[in-house]
């Protein structure tokens, strides 16, 4: 984002001013973001001015091993997953075990981050961490042998400014990812039934 701004011509600037777009709260979620961290202005050829410093943007450095950005400390608990996992069911099998769940999660994240309806929410978020925690959550809920170590749904979605329409778009993307992975429709819905009551923690405006 900063990199782009440096090359703004006055014309583009005028366009940006006349059409600010009201992109919503997610544009202001701030510094906890992979892309921002990657675009280090110190290594930028044109970077005579450190814009991030100018605007007091606090940079976070991704973990060299996991590639994830640091988050504020929190207490891990299986309850953070937001629902009780399936038990004595064939749900894990219906989703293709851990490998199948990982493929579905990766596709789901890809669909969301490229969906013009909701991609702005994911912009500047830690997608590496999202893929991992989402996989853990799905794997845990589907009883496929994982522990969930992410934050609870309320904290994880705080400040994202998710609307009901955003959540509906996300549900459609999850349905698409499951359908592409040939998860039986009844199993898709059984899984969605676990997730549906979480809406109150996800939708914040």
């Amino acid at each position: 984002m900063m990199k782009v701004l440096k090359h703004l011509t006055p014309l583009a600037c005028a366009v940006a001013l006349t059409n600010p777009g009201c992109a919503g709260a997610q544009d202001m979620t701030g510094p906890q973001e992979a892309e921002v961290a990657k675009a280090d202005p110190a290594t930028d050829a044109a970077g005579s001015i450190d814009w991030e410093k100018e605007f007091g943007v606090e940079k976070k450095v991704p973990d060299p091993v996991t590639g994830e950005l640091p988050v504020a400390p929190y207490e891990t608990s299986p309850a953070n997953a937001g629902a009780k996992p399936f038990q004595h069911s064939n749900m894990a099998q219906a989703f293709g075990g851990q490998a199948g769940i990982r493929a579905i999660v990766n596709r789901f994240v890809e669909l969301n981050t490229t969906d013009p309806r909701i991609d702005a929410i994911f912009r500047n978020q830690d997608i590496v961490r999202l893929r991992r925690t989402l996989f853990e959550q799905f794997c845990y809920l589907l009883d496929a042998g994982c522990a969930y170590t992410g934050r609870d749904m309320k904290s994880a979605h705080k400040d994202l400014g998710v609307t009901r329409a955003d959540l509906n778009a996300l549900v459609e993307n999850l349905q698409k990812a499951m359908r592409e992975a040939e998860v039986p429709f009844a199993a898709q819905n059984r899984f969605l039934a676990k997730l549906a009551p979480m809406d109150k923690d996800v939708v914040t405006r």
Binding site: L8, C13, L17, P20, C22, D27, M28, E54
Partner: peptide, 18 residues
């Protein structure tokens, strides 16, 4: 400096908007 003003103004507009 123009870019800076622009960014600030745009931020202000976005903020006002939101």
């Amino acid at each position: 400096s123009l870019g800076r003003v622009c960014r600030k103004t745009a931020s202000a507009i976005l903020l006002t908007c939101a």
